[in-house]
Structures are given as structure tokens and as C-alpha cells.
């Protein structure tokens, strides 16, 4: 290794202990570099699965920060650790037996009525969701808004870890989206029509023709297909 490409090392404190790690690594990689091996708290490593919720403080800053370890660069002087799991009770329900009436969410997660609107959940969210607003929407029975505002939730649980009112936001959002999908969102008319056509056998002949074709013939058909603009 030549001098000019030598990586700069930074100091991080993992669970209080000092380590030297190369600059530019994510928090997750920095911990692995330091010798930790993840059995829990690591998943897709691409910011989609929400398994690697992490809590840290930066040098010379009072703020308690939260992020996904796989998406956040380690910085010099950081105090950090990962959260393998955030305990959160999940309401039991049969989606088939629910309705979209305004009280449905609060009847399964009544503790959302304890929200003090401190907004700590919103600040904790690595997806930059308006978490407090979707809890508030749930409380007032606005299922559409609760579902829409929580749509990009990864279920990392950092909101629930930070809440002074002991709310499990991410389960609440998930319920809102389920109720929204099942009872609020209009059913696609086209899908229904097409399903009926299929059931009535409108495409049977064509399918038989396709299944009888050889691989080369299928490939040719595929490459020459009409593409809708």
C-alpha cells in the first residue's frame, strides 16, 4: 500500500469502547471492521428491510440521533451502538372482521390516545416520515392519511423506541395501511373484468397455442411484441 492512497482512520466509540476504523464506512461496516458480527440487526444492507436501527451521538452535539446503520456513515468521535430489536406488542385482529369506521385503529391500539405531540417519533424516523402526523390521523379516524403518511415505513421501530407515550407507531401504521387496502381503496374495475374474462375462458385458446410453442418461437414472439407507449 502506497502512502498517497492510505485510508484516513477515524475514532468511534462502540458501546463506549474506542476503535479506529477507516473513514467512509457505514456504521454497520465500521462495527464489523471493529470485529462485531451481526447475528441480528442486519438484513438487506441496502436501506430497505429496516433491521439495522441504530442509535448514536455525534461529537460535540447533544442530540440523540437515530438512523439505519447500513445507510449512515460513521463519523469521527461518534458514540454508537445498534439496536437488535425494539419490543413492541402487536394487536391481534382478523382483517376480515375489521371495518373502516373511524374508531377502528384506536380500538386496537388505544394507547395512541396518549400521544403528547412531542414529535420525537418524527425526528427519529430514518425514512423522514411524518410519524406524529400519522398517529394523529389514526386517532381522529383518518385512515387514508394514516396509510399515506406511513406508506414508506420500514418497520425499524426507532419511533417506538423513542416515544414517551409508549406508542408502537409502526404497527399502527401497518394496521392503517391494511385497513386502507382492504376497505378504503376502490377495487380495480379492470382487474375484475379481466378476471371474469379469464374465468369465462376468453383466453383459453391463446394459452393453448402458447404452451404448445417451442422455446425459440416463444423468444421470437417476445422480442417482436408490441410495446405500449
Amino acid at each position: 500500500m502506497t502512502e498517497d492512497i492510505k485510508t484516513r482512520m477515524i475514532k468511534v466509540y462502540i458501546m463506549g469502547r474506542e476503535y479506529e476504523v477507516p473513514e467512509g464506512l457505514t456504521i454497520m461496516k465500521a462495527m464489523e471492521y471493529a470485529g462485531y458480527r451481526f447475528i441480528r440487526g442486519a438484513g438487506c444492507r441496502a436501506g430497505f428491510c429496516g433491521a439495522c436501527g441504530t442509535i448514536f451521538r455525534k461529537k460535540d452535539e447533544y442530540k440523540f440521533r437515530t438512523a439505519l446503520a447500513c445507510q449512515t456513515p460513521a463519523e469521527d468521535g461518534m458514540y454508537l451502538t445498534e439496536l437488535p430489536f425494539v419490543p413492541a406488542n402487536k394487536a391481534e385482529y382478523e382483517l376480515e372482521e375489521l371495518t373502516s369506521e373511524p374508531s377502528i385503529i384506536v380500538s386496537l391500539y388505544p394507547e395512541i390516545a396518549r400521544c403528547v405531540s412531542c414529535n420525537t417519533c418524527t425526528k427519529a424516523c430514518p425514512q423522514d416520515l411524518q410519524v406524529m402526523d400519522y398517529i394523529q390521523a389514526s386517532l381522529r379516524g383518518d385512515i387514508n392519511q394514516a396509510a399515506e403518511l406511513s406508506f414508506d415505513c420500514l418497520q425499524c421501530g426507532l419511533c417506538a423506541a423513542r416515544c414517551p407515550a409508549d406508542i408502537v407507531h409502526y404497527h399502527v401504521g401497518q394496521l392503517a395501511r391494511r385497513v386502507y387496502g382492504k376497505y378504503v381503496l376502490p377495487r380495480s374495475q379492470h382487474l375484475k373484468e379481466r378476471n371474469d374474462e379469464i374465468k369465462a375462458g376468453a383466453f383459453d385458446q391463446e394459452m393453448e397455442k402458447l404452451t404448445a410453442m417451442g422455446l425459440e418461437q416463444l423468444k421470437k414472439l417476445y422480442t417482436e411484441r408490441d410495446i405500449e407507449k
Partner: peptide, 20 residues
């Protein structure tokens, strides 16, 4: 908007419940 909290907090040292 968010829920106002519905009952005003009466304790002299409690600001958390005034946030809403």
C-alpha cells in the same frame, strides 16, 4: 393539526403536555 390534549395540564412543572 394534532390533538390538543383535551385536558389542560395543571402541574406547574409539566411542559410536555403543553406541547400539543
Amino acid at each position: 393539526w394534532n390533538c390538543c390534549g383535551t385536558v389542560y395540564s395543571l402541574a406547574s412543572d409539566d411542559l410536555m403536555h403543553q406541547l400539543a
